[in-house]
Amino acid sequence: MSASALLSVQGVRVDFPGRRGAPVARAVDGVDLDIRRGEIVALVGESGCGKTTLARALLGLVEPTAGRVVFDGRPLRYSGRSLKAYRRRVQLVLQDPSGSLNPRHTVYDAVAEGLRVHGHGGDERAAVAEALSRAGLRPPERFFLRHPHELSGGQRQRVVIAGALVLEPELLVADEPVASLDASVRGEILALLLRLRAELGLSALVVTHDLGLAWNIADRVAVMYLGRIVETGAVERVLTAPRHPYTQALLSVLPEAPGEPVILAGEPPDPSRVPSGCRFHARCHILAGGEADRAGVSQACRGRDPEILDGSGAAQVACHWAHAVTG
């Protein structure tokens, strides 16, 4: 764990037992990831790659099968008291505000809920008003008695963010925070997250399948495939000069991407049947097109698992071909 890291995921593995004797599904398969104070990290990948399970592990909602989560220098403990204290400092922002807000609760009660759970001893009304104001709902008193159905989608997402901010956390974990919003509102919510980082020094992990979102909000990106991070580094470096074939394929389908999109063969493999060698090799256009063979690494791609990337944030890639052609 680097000295400046607020949160460090160290060798985390999360297994889920199969039903009726089926093989164990390894949703997260050895991940190191640091998040520094004041840093926004985007965790990107296709649905089913393990990114939400990893987010749940670092929130303490899933206990890792192996490895550990370290926050502010201390390993996360899974007792009720320890988790309650931890979750005051690390807050979740869900992708669907309609699903995460109780339709019977007023905005005031929705935001105050965290204060009541954690036994806030101060002025509740002032804390709720400040959180709503920070989330861009002003004047806050105008929203106190409204219900979720009376708000727009963007306003509901701001209420969810206010509910996280009211506890004055140090880290936000945002799972697809703008996926359910109209394009016109997405930019406003992303701008809000950036402003909160600037004003409050918040760190954030943004879980998304959208590389365009990562480009607009993140300092650093970690690309995940089949339970493991396969490329990481500063967002500008990874998204302008991707080295892993999987990252290249994800970027190629963006509307502004040059050239033809890379169409990946098949679906992501079953996490209970991780392929030998590089876990991406069965879908890899570099291997299928003969480029890995010309670089002399095709056998390694099929038979040798690349090393796990460390969590330092330096530019790294888990790809035999990328190392062969770029050194």
Rank of each mutant, 00 (worst) to 15 (best):
R283I: 11
P271Y: 05
G289E: 11
V274N: 01
G290H: 14
G290L: 08
G290N: 07
V262P: 01
A265Y: 03
V274M: 07
D270F: 05
D270V: 06
H281E: 06
G290S: 07
G277E: 05
P269Q: 06
C278T: 12
H281I: 12
C278P: 03
G266W: 02
R294N: 10
D293T: 13
I263D: 00
R283S: 10
V262A: 01
R294V: 07
G289Y: 15
G266C: 01
H285G: 12
G290F: 11
G266P: 02
G266I: 04
V274W: 08
R283V: 09
P268I: 06
G289A: 10
A282I: 10
A265R: 09
D293E: 15
P275D: 09
P261G: 02
G289W: 11
P275Y: 12
L287Y: 12
E267S: 11
I286K: 05
S272W: 06
G277M: 07
G289V: 09
P269T: 09
S272H: 06
G277R: 03
S276I: 06
R279M: 02
R294P: 00
R273M: 03
A292L: 10
A292M: 12
R283D: 02
S276Y: 02
F280W: 08
S276F: 00
D270N: 12
H285S: 14
S276K: 10
H285V: 12
L287F: 10
P275M: 14
A282H: 14
D293L: 14
A282N: 11
G290V: 12
E267M: 07
R279D: 01
G266H: 05
P269M: 07
A288S: 15
A292P: 06
R283L: 05
P269F: 02
G266Y: 01
G277H: 07
P269L: 06
V274C: 01
D270R: 10
A282E: 15
G289F: 11
A265P: 00
D270S: 03
I263R: 04
A292C: 03
I263K: 02
R279Q: 06
A288M: 14
R273H: 13
H281A: 13
F280T: 13
P269R: 11
C284S: 06
P268S: 05
F280C: 04
F280Q: 05
P261K: 06
I263Q: 00
H285L: 13
G289I: 13
G277K: 05
A282Q: 13
S272M: 03
V262G: 01
S272N: 07
V262Q: 02
D293A: 15
G266D: 01
R273I: 03
G289P: 08
V262K: 00
R294G: 04
S276M: 07
V262N: 03
